[in-house]
């Protein structure tokens, strides 16, 4: 035999075992992701088109504040919802949008190039997901 590696009966067993573990792991990850996504609402905060924070809204238990852009923007968080609380922009559209709590909700402060959107799946299962809204 020398140094040549040959397949043995034991190897086949090892290969199958590893494959099975792998399949189980992948499906676990996939299922986990799928299930949590269905329950979770995630607020995604972007600045200059870059995602800077993602926050699982269902995990928020008490009031919290985030300060962005050298405190030019204040974002307020409460269980299950998020909003622009303060911004130094002239129009205050972002603040007037109010609380964002549902998937698809969106608010933006154009002068500060900051936006918040809610991602995830809606809890009501009978509602198929939309790709977008015409408004």
């Amino acid at each position: 035999m020398g140094n040549i590696i040959m397949w043995k009966k034991g190897d086949l067993f090892v290969v199958i075992a590893i494959l099975m573990i792998f399949v189980a792991a992948i499906s676990g990850v996939y299922l986990g992701k799928h299930l949590t996504k269905e329950q979770a609402k995630v607020a995604v905060i972007t600045y200059q088109n870059q995602e800077i924070r993602t926050i699982a809204l269902d995990l928020i238990t008490k009031e919290e504040y985030l300060y962005l852009n050298n405190k030019q923007i204040t974002i307020q968080l409460k269980p299950g919802k998020i909003r622009f609380r303060h911004a130094n922009c002239p129009e205050k559209f972002c603040i007037n949008t109010g609380w964002l709590a549902n998937v698809g909700d969106f608010a933006a402060c154009l002068p500060n190039q900051t936006a918040i959107r809610i991602e995830g799946y809606q809890k009501t299962n009978n509602k198929e997901q939309l790709d977008g809204m015409a408004y």
């Binding site: 198929e128 997901q129 939309l130 790709d131 977008g132 809204m133 015409a134 408004y135």
Partner: peptide, 10 residues
Amino acid sequence: DGKAWRIGIQ
């Protein structure tokens, strides 16, 4: 997947 895009009308 070949399906149509679904767009909500406000």
